[in-house]
Design a protein around this nucleic acid. Structure first.
Lengths: 230, 230
DNA sequence: TAGATTGTTAATCGATTAACAATC
DNA sequence: TAGATTGTTAATCGATTAACAATC
């Protein structure tokens, strides 16, 4: 629709590919950490748990960063993927809902190393506000707007009980947050232009249970065994 | 391949549909809780955050549980979906790795009500073994086999650091667990016939960051705004 | 019967895969 | 040059969607 610079052309990366780029990034980091400088698509694919055809197809959407007959320079490809995802910079995030899960998220050490920075922990419960969690003092939910403006937060994490999730999302959206990661077991509705991703423990377990039940029933185990595998 | 009873015929539910059945189940439970006895595909679809065509197509794989001109009986459909997923019975699960996340998972109250029962918490760290978490005493990882046999556990949850994940998965598979939910930020390889699902905080955040970056760049916001939405 | 809503069809869209020409 | 491996093509597969006949 809008005009684009020529260097930026042809940048329509399929959603399925976008979802795998972080996996490749992590696999490349692991390879680099073990001292490997160059890898083939086969090597990287196996480290990422996909087949090499899919990997090469995915990378082809980013550009031509490999060398035929040789493979990929690990550091170079890693940087290109990080740049494409947008994690060469740090993204400020807020976590709302500091119960057991919020606590665990706040303590998650992988944030900083993967392009994210927790700028605030918020909770509506006065009994939790003021406590120190992961070295940060929990602030009242009503401070959300101030914090978002101050740190230019674009990504919010919801770790509240289900009943509160929609209200929190509404407040986030009203204040200008356009990406939400929702851990609450509830569907949240947002206007167009806002991305919501959902992480749901019991849904994942139920998907496993479905396949497990079919295995137990002994029906066609051979054809459906790996149906839900990541 | 194998012969099936006639009542069991035509049971090939697409993976994308399987992944949505738990969402429908939850939406139906919410409707039932608010006293609604009957709903249309439009009602249920909107509660589940999908469009009604997709919902009806999904339900059609299970059978004909609605009434034309009327809609669906909430309780009846809920039971049918629960039966299809396999959560009319309780599934025993073990959680391995009782750090911050394992702690949060152990305390998650949605387990029991959604068809799962945590039969043991395990950790390899002697400093954690013996502590009481969520009313359960943490046991040594080496007790895994005994516990799995005793409770006939089919589903294992990995909440360890990344380095330990593959070892834990290998032990689980060796002992006969055939479904694994992996929260560790690592790819785990398993033999055919074992299902692994992966939940990864930083991957979800990175997918959001990708879309966020594109919004910020102002490129075609209108066409890709909702690209990664759940 | 008239109105409402399901279940199904068929078209479209997007993702995966294997094969191989290009090329280091 | 010969061997290796990428990047791309084209075929296949699976998922989504709109439309509507069936039917309560």
């Amino acid at each position: 629709m809008t005009t684009r610079s020529s260097t930026d052309a042809a940048r329509v990366i399929p959603e399925a590919t976008v979802a795998r780029l972080p996996v490749y990034l992590r696999a490349l980091t692991a390879l680099a950490d073990s001292g490997i400088r160059t890898c083939s698509s086969e090597d990287l694919a196996s480290a990422a748990g996909v087949n090499s055809a899919k990997l090469r197809k995915d990378l082809s959407y980013l550009g031509s960063y490999g060398t035929r007959g040789v493979g990929y320079d690990v550091d170079y490809l890693r940087y290109q993927i990080a740049r494409e995802i947008g994690v060469t910079q740090d993204w400020p995030v807020v976590i709302v809902g500091i119960g057991n899960l919020g606590h665990a998220l706040a303590n998650y050490s992988g944030f900083r190393s993967r392009g994210f920075r927790v700028v605030a922990l918020l909770d509506a419960d006065p009994g939790i506000v003021g406590r120190e969690v992961a070295g940060v003092v929990v602030r009242p939910f009503d401070d959300l707007e101030e914090i978002v403006r101050e740190h230019d937060v674009a990504i919010g994490v919801i770790a509240t009980p289900a009943v509160a999730a929609q209200d929190v999302a509404d407040r986030m959206v009203a204040i200008g947050i356009t990406s939400i990661l929702n851990f609450a077991p509830a569907v949240v509705a947002v206007p167009e232009g806002v991305d919501v991703r959902k992480v749901d423990l019991s849904i994942e377990l139920q998907i496993l249970a479905y396949h497990e039940q079919r295995k137990a029933n002994g029906a066609d185990a051979s054809t459906e065994a790996d149906g839900g595998a990541a």
